[in-house]
Simulated scan of single mutants.
Amino acid sequence: MLGNSIKYAERVKESRQVEKIKKALGDQASEFIPSYYAVLYYGKDFLGGLLEPEEYRKRWDREEVIKTHSFISRKIRKCFGDIPLFWFINRHDNYEDAEGVCKKGSFHSDLYIGEIPDEAIEDPSTALLPLFYAEKQSGIPINMREVGIEALKQLLLEACIRDAKWVGRHPNSLKLQSVPIEEFSQTFDYGLKDITKLDDFNQIVDWKNSSFYKQINRYSSPFMIKSHN
């Protein structure tokens, strides 16, 4: 009985630490006023077709997912400037294979993106300029759409992210939406929903490609300083 009580107390303590760290991460992200939330799915090839088995297996490889994050992060910053990004790696639901064996789901990514300045659109970089001529499913280039600057930012951001090999042209490979300030906390919490233990932070948070300035270190203080990308 004593052993069970100790284990329960340890779980309660860990749960409180997890919630404290989640709040700290949310507070850090809110300082940058993230304006967009994206979910990236990796189940198709660039043109929207089926993946070869070897490529499909990479969707279960966390390091391969991080490589995609790195590519997209560099691309976004070349196009729009040094805006903050916050990446989380989550899994699809578990499933049963043909033999009835339970398997872990493949990865998908949650990305929170900071505000894009008007200047990035009004005076586009050489990296952004070609995206003005990108076509969506309608076949109409972005530069020919009669939309305001905020809608234009989102169209260009989507085109930028879709340049990644793992995202590409399939309509369901990317879900991108603007996030009103009053909805940020709830939206951000969704990316952290699968974090229930301290060890989960280093599996789900992509520290390397995120703009968090503090990182968890469970072996000393709760956080350690981490520089911006």
Rank of each mutant, 00 (worst) to 15 (best):
W87T: 02
A98D: 13
K67W: 01
G100Q: 05
D97Q: 09
K78D: 07
K58E: 09
I76A: 01
R74K: 13
R59T: 15
E55T: 14
H69R: 02
P53R: 08
H69V: 06
H92P: 06
I89V: 15
R77K: 12
K78Y: 03
D93H: 14
R91A: 08
S73I: 07
F88C: 02
H92S: 09
N94E: 12
W60C: 07
W87G: 00
I66A: 00
L85N: 05
E52P: 07
F88R: 01
F88S: 02
I83M: 04
W60A: 10
P84H: 02
F80V: 04
I72H: 06
D82I: 07
F88W: 00
K67Q: 09
S70D: 09
K58L: 14
V101S: 13
S70Q: 11
V65A: 07
P84Q: 03
C79W: 01
K67V: 04
I89R: 04
E54K: 12
I76H: 00
I66Y: 06
S70I: 06
Y95A: 08
H92Y: 12
C102A: 12
T68E: 00
V101C: 12
W87R: 00
R62Y: 03
V65S: 02
G81W: 01
A98R: 12
D97S: 10
R91L: 09
E64G: 03
F86W: 05
I83Q: 02
Y95H: 13
E96V: 13
E63D: 12
F80D: 00
H69L: 08
W87M: 01
D82C: 04
N94F: 11
K67E: 02
V101E: 11
E99W: 13
K78L: 09
Y95C: 03
H69G: 01
G100W: 06
